[in-house]
Nucleic acid binder design. Structure first.
Lengths: 214, 214, 214, 214
DNA sequence: ACATAATCGAGACGGTACGTCCCGTCTTGTG
DNA sequence: CACAAGACGGGACGTACCGTCTCGATTATGT
């Protein structure tokens, strides 16, 4: 992780110097304002062309940065992309309205939105396509993006089990698949606007109640 | 579609000459044994590198054919790939054992196998990744491969409705998503061997009965 | 020597095919009309920037040829330049007017003209400057250009010795230096137009007669 | 000329402070011990790679100095090289043994030694090669190095004329060429060790006496 | 003593030139 | 006329390097 954490202040401002006593290398220090530019350009290029179609040159140009500046920070394309993917993790706030059904609808809706409106949602199919040649990249994506989203769904389900509302021996992992799977699969294979909030409610209700007559 | 239909005989054998009286263009006739070689090489290249990473040169080399031979048949890469994708359709035999649950398990298992063991299953993520730049290719794939598989599931569901075993107002399309989605999504995002036959049975049972306690 | 000898005919015309019975490699044969273009561009680049400053890319561009075409013929810059220098040899016609003095003036004038008006004369200082790093190139130049010119001077001197007009124990090599050296040195170090025909006559006369009073 | 004149003392010692009363700019004064290091490195780089191949970075590195230190003193590469060439002038002591022939041999020998054993002798071909693109540099070299050496030869010749030993209407410039030219041309084009003291004696004798039989 | 200000080595920065590699087109000789 | 083999022009990419710039540290000077 070569990327400095966001300082929370004006990004134009250079970060404060480290406390004295720290040994500093001689020469002009690296300008860390370049890092987020490069990372952003990398993610955009990844969404546009995938890993194989991503060139360091295009990243540098899009970031408005010399090629040497990129290579100075990340020696290989893989290292750059790995660091870029590591920044995709997003904080998820918990959902707890008291209604299990409403909470499930809310978290699955969050999955839906993340698939289509975010950069990471556009990156996913690219990484998926190259999973065989570069499994490590997709692993990183899974850990950073997919796993947290699933965990959010799973935590709601566990609350339902604890409250006695759901079967005590519920296979949480399986049911998570059954909530996330239809939404994601449909979105990716059928177009971005196919899955509406209404449909998600139907999915949740179906999983809760089944489809048998009476 | 420039591809000659499979003759059903030994492909090594040259097709018999048409009856005399038919006008034939002068010169050496085109050797149609080359076509399936090129199509196969195209699908393999598509699975390996996607559309963007597919080069006519690599296809020709893999097919053991000169580049000009490929270009003589298909003027562009798009035309070649479109024709190649059109050959992916596979015949599906109907499932009807009398048990709705067993039939659903069977058809979903067919989906599972098709995702991982066939060429078309390996091509899917590639086309998915390039859906934005080449939506027509993925449309072809959807019509040729995805739609028939879904239709198989849907037909079993419709039988269940007709038999009164399932709710009369069932949203067939939605439930199809709920059976196919979890399987495909899990397979593609989590690895090929994660989804077992047992798990598919659980999915079918959950969709049928729901997850509510009591 | 990968360069085909000049055919003497219209360079636009492709050379005749080799006699049948010669085995020919398959595929499109190399278009040997490209060779003289590349060689000419190489010599021009050599005169302009020397060996170190010569780039294969610039040569290809100047010749109106793809880079791969150059590398297909000559794998390295050194091989290309060596072949180019090998084409610099020019035929020298003998001088024999009956007058030793006039013949000497004529051959030294030929040296003078070759130094300033030809491509090889502009290439010489470049090779000279890089003699330490690439002695082989200058050696080639010396054999192809310098040695023949000196031999022309020497042959006239030998005729003078044989005719009894010059000292019998004359050091031909030394006197050749004394005729060629002042002209070349002056031209290269003082500018192109400093050495006139009159001056060359004076040099010849001085070498013949010396500078001592009476 | 930004170069401080040689102080004649130990160059390691910093120069004494100027007498008080002289206005001095505030801040850290420039350390003039760096200048000769940079000049030397420049001449060495010039001998090694010529003007075009000389980089300020390489000069700074060879001088053990930061790049900014070089640019603070000389704004351009041309200014640096011009100043470096201006330091090449060497003092020539007069030759006068009473024998014209011996004096000529001595001064021509001095030319010979200067061509091969000194830095300026190795720089000459580099500047010669770039005379067309940078005539000013070679002009400087000619004034600083070539002209003084020629003048030394010329002065001996003038003494010979004044003493009546040489023809009264002697073209001094021409004869200087005839003494210096063969030596320099031979050395540069044929290798460094080709011209011996014996050969120089022969050249002088030939110029003095001519080559005609009897 | 201490503030001031310019110099110093080191190295990051944007930009550029170059050789390698590869693609799609074109051009051969052969079947 | 089809076919393979491969030459051709063109372009994209990573490497290497250059001149400019910017940094912290140093070092004389003046108060």
């Amino acid at each position: 992780m070569a990327v400095a954490p966001a300082s929370g202040t004006d990004p134009r401002e250079r970060p404060a110097r480290p406390p004295s006593g720290v040994v500093r290398p001689p020469g002009r220090p690296r300008d860390n304002r370049r890092d987020p530019l490069i990372i952003e350009a990398t993610l955009a290029a990844l969404a546009a062309n995938g890993f194989g179609g991503l060139s360091m040159e295009a990243v540098a140009a899009a970031a408005g940065v010399g090629k040497a500046t990129v290579y100075r920070r990340w020696p290989t394309k893989g290292a750059l992309v790995a660091d870029a993917l590591a920044t995709l993790a997003e904080p998820h706030e918990p959902h707890d309205t008291g209604s299990l059904r409403d909470d499930l609808v809310a978290v699955v809706n969050a999955v839906r939105r993340n698939n289509i409106q975010t950069l990471s949602g556009r990156i996913m199919p690219r990484l998926l396509a190259e999973k065989e040649s570069h499994p490590d990249l997709f692993d990183t994506y899974r850990q950073q993006v997919i796993a947290p989203a699933r965990e959010q769904v799973a935590s709601v389900l566990r609350r339902g089990v604890a409250a006695g509302e759901l079967k005590a021996d519920l296979d949480i992992d399986l049911v998570t698949d059954m909530l996330v799977g239809p939404v994601s699969y449909r979105q990716y294979t059928a177009g971005s606007h196919e899955v509406t909030g209404t449909r998600i409610s139907q999915i949740v209700d179906t999983v809760l109640g089944g489809i048998r007559a009476r």
